[in-house]
Amino acid sequence: MEQTAPFIGSRPAAEQRHWGEWIIEKLIQVAGLSTIVIIGLIFFFLLREGLPAFFEVPLRTLLGGRWYPIENLFGLWPLLVGSLLVTAGAILIAVPLGLITAIYMGEIAPRWQREILKPLIEMLAGIPSIVLGFLGWVVLAPLIQQAGASTGLTAFTGSIILAYMSLPTIISSSEDALSAVPTEYRDGALAIGATQWQTIWRVVVPAARSGIVIAIMLGIGRAIGETMAVLMVTGNAANVPALGLGMFFQPVRTMTATIAAEMGEVANGSVHYHTLFAIGILLFVITFAINSLAGRLVGTQGKRRRSSQL
């Protein structure tokens, strides 16, 4: 009984602490919830401004291949194709290049080279996208035109610029994933007579696969949402290129570039205005799909690895 007495005596103090706790807890809760609320609001306004387009513009026009707002033709198809072309090209360039660079940095390069490379790549991430776009316009576009394309401002030009924009993300995230692979795996493979390359390709890279998938998805995320540089170098022609390899060397127009270029000129509440928001909805859906696909890929692999450690 004597022991419990001081506890009862200190109760007001405990109550005070409890209030302090309550306030801090609520602050954290508000901060956390506000993120959800803001995302909800973004989605709400996007839908409110964009959905009317689906009623105002006939579905056949929306799915059509002609984007001529002045003639009330709002075909989203060329914009979608433009975005997909530029992004796909960027992925084709950036993924192998990024992965190989990461492997070189993490597994092969001696320490002094690594210490030079890493900050350099981080610097590449810090270059404003508009500067890269400028570079594409001044240096890359003339080169591509000389190589035989009818104009230098093509989907391919955009792909290269976007690839270099997403490279730092892909490189540094995959390098993190590679360095998270336990040294024991490398030792184990080397100890049974694997060469360095066999060790990297058959053991280290497969073991880091989930991290590399995240890295690539992050890179794609950056590429598909990018606006300014793409606006500068892709030529901005809203046409559907003919199928074939040549389609990379024609001017295209992406969804993001369309919004950026035309938003300032439309009348608030017009059909055109609503359609631009509808493009936003489409972009939102695409990025959401990519993110959840990445989450699912990584989720199942992560689970497998966890259970394997038991």
């Binding site: 184990g188 100890a191 007579g193």
Partner: peptide
């Protein structure tokens, strides 16, 4: 590489490969 095939090693932590 050949030397390591002749003198093989097993480690403290089991390291099955994927």
């Amino acid at each position: 590489t050949d030397l390591r095939r002749r003198i093989s090693m097993v480690f403290a932590i089991p390291t099955p490969l994927p």
